[in-house]
Design a protein around this nucleic acid. Structure first.
Lengths: 254, 254
DNA sequence: AAAATATTTTGACCAATGGTCAAAATATGG
DNA sequence: CCATATTTTGACCATTGGTCAAAATATTTT
């Protein structure tokens, strides 16, 4: 089974599949769709496999032909999200502009993603616990790692280019360190802005604005030219929204 | 029961307690000690209340006289850690030096804390899930919020002072926004450096060095004087270690 | 078309575990 | 020493992730 599924993702829809294989894949998507819904609506604990089985109108045993455990299933949902994120990163990286503007476009991709896949960060947090990770199948772990590396590479590539072009100094830290700083501040900002208590203390009302502000601060700290004070990024923002993420208009407020 | 426990933390050891109350508190500490050990050794899932009961040599029913649920117990462990962190923050904030140097001392407190309380971030991640949080008692939630706010205030106070003294510009962002950026990058860095896959991609070998580098980048981005290039912070580091966290020598490498 | 064989689906069942509570044990007071 | 109050216990319960033999369905053979 795993083989078929994997094959699907490698060769995509172009390969001819038997009716059975197509049915199997369609069902897997159905299961993932419902699992994601339950995950968003209730979180990991507050639903069980019986309820999911009822929702997809298959028995529990059938669920376990697709996934080795509840954790395995949830990891698959997370990897799906991560794949979407990587795709949006790729779209953003193609934005026409300076290296820092392209980095900004990826920042928008991040926010847009957080808006559209609200389950992602919650699940990603769960993946930090070892016991969760080890209940998932090797195949799913690899898929997740693959999509994670994809996201990393897209951003890192821009940083490398920035250094090559002289937009960012290369003496204080490596490109990888700079990329890691960006990743850290982004993840940290997303997680922290979901803490109601802290948002009250900090007077935060607009989460996405906060995430992007922190990204600006990091980029300035990395000495990534042009600095925030040297360039009108609100004009860039309008272009990013118009050309790459029209939907971002909903959460963006200048 | 809760009343007694709370009373303890309000009035501390100065109040005279009956033998029963002392025994009760001693047992609670014993439970917390063993719960923390299990949490570090195995994580949340891989131990159960029966095992804990056996370890502390009391029955399961007795455990539930102290804690309303497993989550409640684990939250208590986390709050204990958070209290320690707040105390170290306070110690660090008293460091004699510029505002940015004192911020740096708090950065050291963070790393030292991560080193000594390795369970903290794992548990803190679990607190992001709503279902966890709502299984804990109101009292414990409040205690946790209290210690969290304490940490926030210590750092925020230094940022406010930095702005007042002109060490940091006050036109680009508020003191709260600056504090939030610091908190975000720190949490994000700690979480991300615990991701083996990412560490390989980024070529990270020294986690604490990475956390502190990212803090430097954020501080520079906040334009917090003196900037990293304007001052010999390795000298500051030596002083912080000598005067505040001698143990930090173990993970610090210039 | 019917029987034989292979594959898929099912849901009763199992084991693990967080949590409860009546009964036993212990402490307190007279 | 008894009576009463308090504390501790562990058998028991309900939930739930996961299994597997049997039923249902599909495919092949005669």
């Amino acid at each position: 089974m795993v083989k078929i599924w994997n094959h699907f993702h490698m060769a995509a829809e172009t390969t001819t599949l038997s009716r059975k294989e197509r049915e199997f894949l369609a069902r897997e998507e159905l299961i993932l769709k419902h699992a994601r819904r339950l995950l968003i609506e209730r979180g990991f604990q507050a639903w069980n496999m019986d309820q999911l089985a009822e929702a997809v109108e298959y028995s529990k045993g059938t669920l376990y032909q697709h996934f080795t455990s509840k954790e395995d299933l949830v990891l698959a949902v997370a990897t799906d999200s991560l794949r979407t994120r990587a795709e949006w990163f790729e779209k953003a990286a193609k934005f026409q502009g300076s290296t820092r503007e392209r980095c900004r476009a990826i920042g928008f991709a991040c926010c847009e993603f957080a808006e559209k896949c609200p389950d992602f960060f919650h699940v990603e947090m769960m993946l930090k616990s070892a016991s969760f990770w080890e209940k998932a199948s090797e195949q799913r772990r690899q898929n997740h790692a693959f999509e994670g590396a994809r996201c990393w590479r897209i951003l890192n590539h821009i940083v490398v280019e920035a250094m090559a072009l002289g937009d960012m100094p290369r003496d204080a830290f490596s490109a990888e360190e700079a990329t890691f700083a960006l990743v850290s501040v982004t993840m940290g900002s997303h997680v922290m802005t979901q803490e109601p208590q802290l948002c009250v203390l900090a007077g935060i009302t607009n989460q996405m604005r906060t995430v992007r502000l922190n990204q600006d601060i990091i980029c300035d700290g990395l000495n990534w030219k042009p600095l925030f004070s040297q360039h009108d990024y609100s004009a860039t923002d309008r272009r990013i929204i118009k050309e790459v993420f029209p939907e971002a208009m909903n959460w963006y407020r200048a």
